[in-house]
């Protein structure tokens, strides 16, 4: 019998090598794209007014269920709004089983959890011109006054469906389907060439 602990982990971008383009003269700043692999992701379905579920999620993640187009992300664990009765819980690797067992045994009514850790890959995008760069392939209003830190939207980047989260004024998290991650890295690094870019695999 093989224990899951001895199987080597392979992230969504393990096949993609580092990419580097020098910072040209007059660039507004360099963009750094990194993979943030091996987070556990749980899709949560529940009514937003389910008080018991809210309290349990707060206990497990230290966040209340965020409202529309928001992500609660301070600390190790994050909760991202996906729909009027749907959220994504992001936690450290190996945490999904415990979190799901906690939710499932708590008898919260109509609540469902699905582990989706391996369905998605995660990128972090940093650098002063991040907003301009992301806006090239995305129809969302990314103005700093509108798309503030903690805003999270599901949208389309190029041809790929993504979840885009503003973590800071110049920092973003891009969550995409595993099979689209090499495409997203190619798309974002290409869009970043004019600023200078470094893509670092995990």
């Amino acid at each position: 019998m093989v224990s899951s602990a001895v199987l080597p982990g392979r992230s969504a971008l393990s096949q993609v090598a580092a990419i580097q383009h020098p910072v040209p003269k007059g660039s507004a700043g360099k963009i750094t794209i990194k993979e943030a692999p091996f987070h556990d992701l749980i899709n949560l379905r529940c009514q937003p007014d389910n008080k018991m579920a809210n309290a349990l999620i707060k206990k497990l993640t230290s966040h209340s269920l965020p409202s529309a187009n928001q992500a609660a992300q301070a600390g190790d664990r994050a909760v991202i709004w996906l729909g009027p009765d749907e959220w994504l819980i992001m936690a450290e690797a190996g945490a999904a089983n415990t979190i799901m067992a906690n939710i499932e045994t708590a008898n919260l009514g109509h609540v469902a959890t699905t582990e989706v850790s391996n369905a998605y890959g995660i990128l972090t995008v940093n650098g002063k011109p991040s907003r301009q760069m992301l806006a090239k392939h995305c129809a969302i209003d990314l103005d700093a006054g509108v798309f503030t830190s903690g805003t999270a939207v599901q949208t389309i980047m190029g041809h790929a469906g993504i979840i885009l989260i503003a973590t800071d004024e110049n920092s973003f998290t891009v969550i995409g389907r595993s099979s689209f991650m090499p495409y997203l890295v190619a798309l974002l690094t290409d869009a970043s060439i004019e600023y200078g870019v470094e893509y670092r695999p995990a």
């Binding site: 529309a68 187009n69 729909g83 009027p84 129809a139 969302i140 599901q154 949208t155 389309i156």
Partner: peptide, 10 residues
């Protein structure tokens, strides 16, 4: 009605 104004392509 849930996400607000978004592009037609979505």
């Amino acid at each position: 009605p849930h996400c607000g104004a978004r592009d037609e392509t979505e």
